[in-house]
Design a protein around this nucleic acid. Sequence first.
DNA 1: TTGGAATATTAAACACTGTTTAATTATTTT
DNA 2: AAAATAATTAAACAGTGTTTAATATTCCAA
Lengths: 205, 205
Amino acid sequence: MGISDRKEREKEELRDRILIAAKSLFLERGVEKTSIRNIADRIEYSPGIIYHYFKDKNEIFHALHQGGFIQLMEKMQVLNSVRNPMERLKAMGSIYVRFAMENPDMYDLMFIKEAPIDHVFNSKDDQWKEGGGTFNFLRKTIEDCIAAGYFKGHDSEALSYMIWSTVHGMVSLSIRRRCEVVLPDRQDSIVVDGLEEFYKILDRL
Amino acid sequence: MGISDRKEREKEELRDRILIAAKSLFLERGVEKTSIRNIADRIEYSPGIIYHYFKDKNEIFHALHQGGFIQLMEKMQVLNSVRNPMERLKAMGSIYVRFAMENPDMYDLMFIKEAPIDHVFNSKDDQWKEGGGTFNFLRKTIEDCIAAGYFKGHDSEALSYMIWSTVHGMVSLSIRRRCEVVLPDRQDSIVVDGLEEFYKILDRL
DNA sequence: TTGGAATATTAAACACTGTTTAATTATTTT
DNA sequence: AAAATAATTAAACAGTGTTTAATATTCCAA
C-alpha cells in the first residue's frame, strides 16, 4: 500500500507541475495566449503528456479557477466578526471588489470567461456548486438584513442576484476596459467611487 | 467624378458583403468560431482578399459591433416621450435588459468581449466615443433625476456608472452562464426579477 | 487599339493552435 | 529474464490569423 501510495503521489506531482506551469503562464499572459505547447515547454515534457492528466485545455483552467474561489472565500472569513448584517453586506462588497481589482485575470477566469464554465456542469466537485459558495454567503447576509428590518418586501434570492450583479458589473466593465472609453479620466477610481454610490443608496434604505 | 464614385461604391460593395457574411456567421456560431476562411468561403473569394478591406479580424468585428450601438440607441428613442426622469431611468433599464436578452451575442460583442475594444482606442469615428453615446444618455437622465430631487448627495457620474453596472452585471452574468450554476431553477426569470428588485429600491428613495 | 501602370485577387506559405495516433521508452510484475 | 503494463514522445491532423509574391483584371494615356 505504501509503495502504490508513493506512486500515486508521484503521479499527482506531475499533475501539479502542469498546474503550476499553467498558472504562472496564465498570470503572465492570460488564458488565450497560454498554449498547451507553452505549458509543456515549461515543464520540459512533450505536449502530449498533458492529455494524460487533463481531458483538455479547459480542464486545466477549470482546475486553476477553483483555487480562486478558495482564495476569495478565505478573504470573506473576516466577515464573521461583523455583527451588523448591513455592515457585513457592505464589507462583503468591498472585499469582493478588492479581490477583483487585485486579481483581475483570476476574476476574469472565475466570472467572465466562457472557457471554464462549460466544465462546471460536467464536473462533480466544483467550487461553484459546493454548499458554502460565495453566492450563498451573500444570500445568507441578505436574509439577515431582511430579518433585521432592511429590504422590506424584497425577494432575498433575486435581491442577492441584483446586488451581486452591481459589484460584478462594476469590476467587469473595468476589467474588460469599457470604462476607459466612457470615463477616461476616472478609470482608476471609478469602481471604488461607484461602490461608494451604492453604499449611499443602502444607507438611505 | 461620377465614374470614380461608382468605383468607390463597387469597392464598398465587397466590403459590405464581407460584413454581411461575417455578421450572419457570427450570429450563427459566435465570434471565435467564425474564421476568416469561413467568411471567404461564404462570399466565394479567397481568404486573402479580406485583408484588403480590413486590417485584421478585429476590425471586422469592430465594424459589426458599431451596428449594435445604433440598434440600441434607436430603441432608446422612445424614452424621449417619458417626461418623469425616474420613470425614464426605469424604462431605460428595461430597454437595455431586453436588448441584451434578445441579442445576447451582439451584447457580448459590445460589452463583454475583449476583441473589439482594443480597436476602439485607435479608431477615430467610433460609437463608443461619439457624443450621444448610451452612457451619456444615462448620465443625462440621472442628472435630471437629481434636478428633480432624487439621489441627493450623489455624484452623477459615479452613480451613472453604478446603475449601468447593475444592469450590465445582471445580463452579463446571465449571458456568461454564471446564474445557471447558482440559480438553476430561475435562470429564465432571474434577470427580470433582479431588475424588479432594483426598481423596488429606486421607488423607496 | 495597344501597352504600360495601377489595382484586385489569389495560391501558397508561415508560424501558430488544440488534439489524437501510433510508436517508443521505462517500469513493474510474473 | 520475459511478458505485461504504464509513461512518454514524435508525428500527424485539421484548423487558425496573417503575409508574401505571383497572377489576373481593369484603367488610362499614347
